[in-house]
Design a protein around this nucleic acid. Sequence first.
DNA 1: CGGGTCAATCCGGGAG
DNA 2: CTCCCGGATTGACCCG
Length: 361
Amino acid sequence: MELALSLGDTPKPFSFLDKATKMPNKDLGFCIALGNGLSKEMKNHSGSSSSHENERSSLRVSSSDPPLQLDLLPFSPVPRTQQPPPPSQLRIPWLSDTLGIERASSDGQTRRLDVSRLFPAEVQAVEEAEDGTALSSPNSSASSFQMDFSIRNFNMGRNKREHELGDAERTSSRASDDDENGSTRKKLRLSKDQSAFLEESFKEHPTLNPKQKLALAKQLNLRARQVEVWFQNRRARTKLKQTEVDYEYLKRCCETLTDENRRLQKELQELRALKSSQPFYMQLPATTLTMCPSCERVATNTNSSSTAAAAATTGNQTTSTTTTTTTTTTNNSTSTATIPIALSLLSQVHLPQAQAHKTAS
DNA sequence: CGGGTCAATCCGGGAG
DNA sequence: CTCCCGGATTGACCCG
């Protein structure tokens, strides 16, 4: 069973499956591709496939046999084109032609979070800092205070505890964060606006280039390092969530297949019992089942002999891996008669690969 | 008080 | 060597 699993935030989920890479949402999509064996079995239970013994064969199979691709989009159920627009006041810096936030003020049509209008002094300080070092520098007390001021304004609408804390307390807390007493690490909580803005940015670009990082840091009045850390942690959280989702899905998939396997095993036993109780059918010639590679339906050829079927089998397997020829015989090799009805049912039996090989041979 | 969350740090590995 | 990233971990803060 070929099973490829991809996390949506990877730019190329399946390097070997071109069709599976076409995901509607490359940011947060969840894509599972079930390869040859499983995909066929899940479609029509049309028998076993023995053509993916190694990775190379699975590559061939995957390219010729469309995998069953499941796109689960747990975090963004609506495709991006149908998603509601981001908060009106938020505009990702690199989505517009202008990069600087000052230029945004000249855009009267767009309602963006214009930090320069809100806190011109802070933006000036950040721009002077360039990479944010001035903000974190112990000597830059002015920058620290300005950052505290802006954070307080960003914090409008935060939880009540922070309101109860009061501006003075938080200011002193934040101020002590940047002073020379760097040994104690103070907890910094990003405001809701900052987090929302970063989230929107993350949806557009899970990874940042330095230019984007700087622009975002300027716009949010954060250090570039903070933006970088936030994106790193955000990617980690996304991956963790995806892992949980993948685990749950694969668990359900495994349970379903186990139940199906159990049911079909039981069915197979009943058919064997039926076959042994009706020796009349033992006189019939062997039946060859050939699977059509295009429609994946089983075509019965009751007149073909076993040797011809075997020859056709080898020929088909060398030319097309999607063609599966199954010659079913009884356990006693001298009596090659088969039960047509049973064969049509047996062709749908989903068995473990080893057992399927045993039956086919 | 314990558990959860999350920003921040440390460290190793890969790419240029 | 530098830069960036992922993974693991730490520590502050929040909440029931």
